[in-house]
Design a protein around this nucleic acid. Sequence first.
DNA 1: ATTTCGTGTCGTATGTTTACGACATATAGA
DNA 2: TCTATATGTCGTAAACATACGACACGAAAT
Lengths: 108, 108
Amino acid sequence: MITNKSEIFPAEQQQAAVYAKAISHPARIAILRFLAESKVCITGDITDAIPLGRTTVLQHLQVLKDSELITGDIDGKRVCYCINSDRYDEMKQLFDELLKKINPINCC
Amino acid sequence: MITNKSEIFPAEQQQAAVYAKAISHPARIAILRFLAESKVCITGDITDAIPLGRTTVLQHLQVLKDSELITGDIDGKRVCYCINSDRYDEMKQLFDELLKKINPINCC
DNA sequence: ATTTCGTGTCGTATGTTTACGACATATAGA
DNA sequence: TCTATATGTCGTAAACATACGACACGAAAT
């Protein structure tokens, strides 16, 4: 059975949905905020800052990487996770446009 | 096994995540846009406008209702789905604050 | 050389989401 | 009354998400 038909919708809406999904868990919002505020962004530090198991945090990091909102580059022994500014700006713009387009009217 | 620990995060982040989840599928973005643009917002019309089965559309409507972004009031024979302006404004504000707080820095 | 530390991957349990057909109900019209 | 229409509910299959322990690997410290 087909369990995903997302591709039949306009690309713009698909991409907005991808970003929305990326930030649809409080842990991932917390990770983004931590990355934005910290200067040293390595996995260990992130795990310490988020009250979840290390594996779970890694998983959330992977979800964020899949959405391309963050990068995870190897820096010698450690891995440095950073917010991808370009994608982040794209997300902001997509949300801005989307929210502007939807103007609630009371129809009933 | 515990499979959800969302409640350990700040309420603000939880609520932002709830709204993000609500718009994390292109079908639901399409529904919101349709509701914003149409004057007659009944289930049948929505089903006609979204290229998915009627049951699936109803399910997406239920997700949006759970997030309180829309209401679904019975209007005689028909049910009128509308965007909940108050919640919609709250979502806009939460996203705005969140996106403002996260200022990407290149740490590597 | 051995241990420790930081990291990633694998497996697994449980719950949620997406998609839809089949059925039920209730109102309006023939 | 019977039929058509609009709607909601139930069940179910497949996939995805969340959470975490156990294991593997490589670099640095002892």
